[in-house]
Nucleic acid binder design. Structure first.
Lengths: 223, 223
DNA sequence: CGAGACACGTGACGC
DNA sequence: TGCGTCACGTGTCTC
């Protein structure tokens, strides 16, 4: 009688995440509810209990759908925990807040630079060390045949493409083929690298630290 | 025996939201757990059951704290429903996404607006003296709809990709979308640029001179 | 009174 | 083996 719970187990922990709509297999609830209410001979009470059960079920279902929707709008989600999903969402919102401030500062700088008649000064101040790389997603996958694919998405800022290339150039990897494409304010870089499966995680760490070090040269991130 | 639930009721629906930390009034859990387990005579089983109970309690508590924290980073929250909190968070994140796109478009416009009058050398220190860019093919084509496509092939050397990006970055073009792919010692860069047909030839000259200037900064190639 | 929202204890499942 | 996570049914409160 607990098999319904089992289905939901699969909902959370296996790979059927892409059809969150069609697990509406609750049609036999009414029949079951009568079975549970063996202590109360009153029909009205059992009806109320079943109502409560199905209502609660719908509430939980709605909540899970909401949670799943929240997960879908937050990039870079690692763990599928309910708590982790909410935590990642919080971190992401705070990240967006910081990013908004950064971008607005950049806009202010650009505007104030336009006001002045000195384009040289403007460009130097903007180019020097502003607009860090904002990584939106970083995915490192082992594809077999000793090849690892790195897929990186970030927002397009000033010199972002240059810095991105510098990062991968500095890591001295065995790059098979690389590709950068830019669209609608985004930058997507895909790199095929010759490496074993064990080097995958290490590679991801390396890339992250390299980008972090480039964004903030002051901190001694070099392990 | 259900008074604990009552406290939590107040936690959600009254005004004690500001002390989400100090409702640690679960100290008598162990004593109660033994009471609940009246069906199992085994002491070890009751211990396990109580462990599960307190663990589950902590899990729920953590989840509620997370949800509360999520609520605190999302402005303009009207309803206190769990589902509504998550929904508002989703809407807020999507709102931030749209806003980010708008602002980035604004930045792009601002940057391309600066490009108008800037005869001075942009990057005075590109440095890197070795391995010049060896252009194998440069094709500039007008595609209609005010778009010009630049297709450039060169041999892959050290930092070639970086330099290539720098070149196009320094020209301050209205780039619609760009793409670099590397294969078998070659580098192919494709750039879609917003420009009229008349600017086509001028564009080709600009790119050639920029690359030449980068390869040999000593010669006064700057128009 | 019912409808909705919540916390609780419980059994099950995976690591 | 425990430990963490989950969905479930239930009792209780508020509107």
């Amino acid at each position: 009688m607990e098999n319904i719970g089992d289905e939901y187990k699969n909902y959370w922990e296996t790979n059927m995440f892409l059809q969150t709509q069609e697990l509406d297999s609750w049609g036999l609830d009414e029949a079951l509810s009568g079975y549970y209410d063996s202590s109360s001979p009153d029909g009205a009470a059992s009806s109320a209990a079943s109502k409560n059960i199905v209502s609660e079920r719908n509430r939980r279902k709605k909540l899970n759908e909401r949670l799943f929707a929240l997960r879908s709008v937050v990039p870079n989600i690692s763990k599928m925990d309910k708590a982790s999903i909410i935590k990642d969402a919080i971190d992401y919102i705070q990240h967006l807040h910081e990013q908004e401030k950064t971008i607005q500062a950049e806009i202010m700088e650009l505007e104030s630079g336009v006001m002045k008649k000195n384009p040289k000064q403007l460009h130097d101040s903007v180019t020097s060390r502003n607009s860090p790389i904002e990584v939106l997603e970083l995915r490192v996958t082992y594809m077999g045949e000793k090849t690892v694919v790195v897929s990186l998405t970030c927002s397009k800022r000033t010199d972002t493409m240059v810095k991105l290339c510098e990062v991968f150039e500095s890591l001295k990897l065995k790059i098979i083929t690389a590709n950068i494409t830019s669209f609608s304010g985004r930058l997507l870089k895909t790199v095929f690298i010759e490496a074993n499966e064990e080097e995958k995680d290490d590679l991801q760490i390396k890339i992250q630290t390299a980008i972090a070090a480039l964004n903030d040269p002051l901190s001694p991130m070099s392990i």
